[in-house]
Every structure is written in C-alpha cells, then in structure tokens.
Amino acid sequence: MRQLLAVYRQQLKTALAEQLQYRAALIIWLIEVALGPAVSVSVWSTVARNEGGAVNGYSSAGFAAYFIATMLVNYATQTWVFWEFSRRVREGEFSPLLLRPIHPIHADLADNLAYKILMLPVITLVTLILFFAFHASIALTLANVLAFLPALVLAFALRFILEWTLALLAFWLTQVNVINQLYVVVVLFLSGQLVPLTLLPTPVQVASAWLPFQWMVAFPAELLVHRLSPPALLTGLLAQLAWLLVGLALFSLTWRLGIRRYTAVGG
C-alpha cells in the first residue's frame, strides 16, 4: 500500500509537470467550461422571467446556483480516458503499459487527479465570475456540505470506473468515437447538466433514476443547492454504491475479456 502511494506521488508529480507545459490550453478550457453553464443559466432565467419569476420552483438565482453546482461536480468527476484509449490501442502505446508491473488504471487515475489540481484555480475563477454575473444565490450549511463530500467522492469513483470500462471497447471496435459522442450526449442530458432533471418528462425521469448518470453529477449538485431530505440523501448514496459495485464488476469482466482479446490478436 505504501509503495502504491509512492507510485501515485511520482505519477502525480510527472503528470503535473507534463500538463504545466500546456498553460495556454487553460484559457481555452476556462472558456469551454464556463460557456455551457452560462448558456443554460441564460436560457432558463429567460424562461423563468417569462413565466412570472420561477419554473418548477427554480428562480433565476436558483437556476444559476444549480448550473454552477453541476459545473463544479462535472469538473470533479469528469474523465477523458475513453477518448484517449482508442488512440493508445491503435498506435501501440498500450503494450508498454501492459508490461509495467502495475495496473494501467493507476496511471490514469493519477493523471486525472493531477489535471484537477492544475485546473483548480481556473474552476474557482469561473465559479466566482458566474456566481456574480448571474446573481446566483445559495445557502450552504455545514450539514449539506458534509453530505455533499461523500456523494462527490462516490460520484467520481463511479464515473471513473464506468468511463474506463467504456474506454475498453476500443479493444473490440475501431470506430469508438461515435459511441463516445453518443455517450457524452446521454450524460449531458441524464446527468442533469443541460436541464435540471425535474424539468424532464416524467418517463425520462423514471428511466434516469434507474440509470447511473444522474448519480454521477445531478445528485451531488442537488445535494449542495437544495439540501435534499434525509431519505433522498440515503437513496442517492445507496444508488451510488450499488452502481459503483456494478461498475467494478463490469470493469473487471471487461478488462479480463479485453486483455484476452488484445493478447490473442497482438498489440
């Protein structure tokens, strides 16, 4: 365990050094990350104004708080590995990873964390700008922050495992980008990043509750801005745990099959 930590420390240092080379990309990322919430807040605030100040209990300020929260949770849980993996397999960059005496998922996890550390100032800045530009209002209490943290960690674990599993499809398919794109759209909708889930049609809401996506973003975000009731909190945490277990099972199965295939056809 201590040695694994040493690997993480070194991997983090390396990833930080590597990503610091691309400071210019930070500006682009700042705009990309801020634009989505800014557009959503603008649209829904306009609707709220038209409809006498509120839609389904969301005021303009409420929408602003909600979309800033989903942006933060999305930042904390986002991964890119499913875009990366097909290139890795295609260009023979996967074989060296397989020859290391450590599972490749560790390197990706460390990379992801390093990126997040690096982006922390950017996301803080974006949050502040959006918060004041859109007059968001939020009432934080110690209790809902305390409830938010475990939900966020679980959301990250869940999303990381599921997206790494999705990435493994590259072992079987050469054109995974269309699937990835479809996945991104589904996540955008069903994780509550485009629209608060309660505004979606009822059948979609029901389906969404049984799918993993809303537990990856919407649940922690709502926890932060709405102070969910204790039963809703409990349901959410259990759903996250259940999906995490499913994700781990899927991951280990897909990994085993994928490696078997990879080592049969040649890297």
Partner: peptide, 8 residues
C-alpha cells in the same frame, strides 16, 4: 424541453 415550460 424548454418549450414545455414556456410559450416564447
């Protein structure tokens, strides 16, 4: 979705 909540 937007136009289920508003007319314009």
């Amino acid at each position: 979705v937007v136009f289920t909540y508003t007319q314009s």
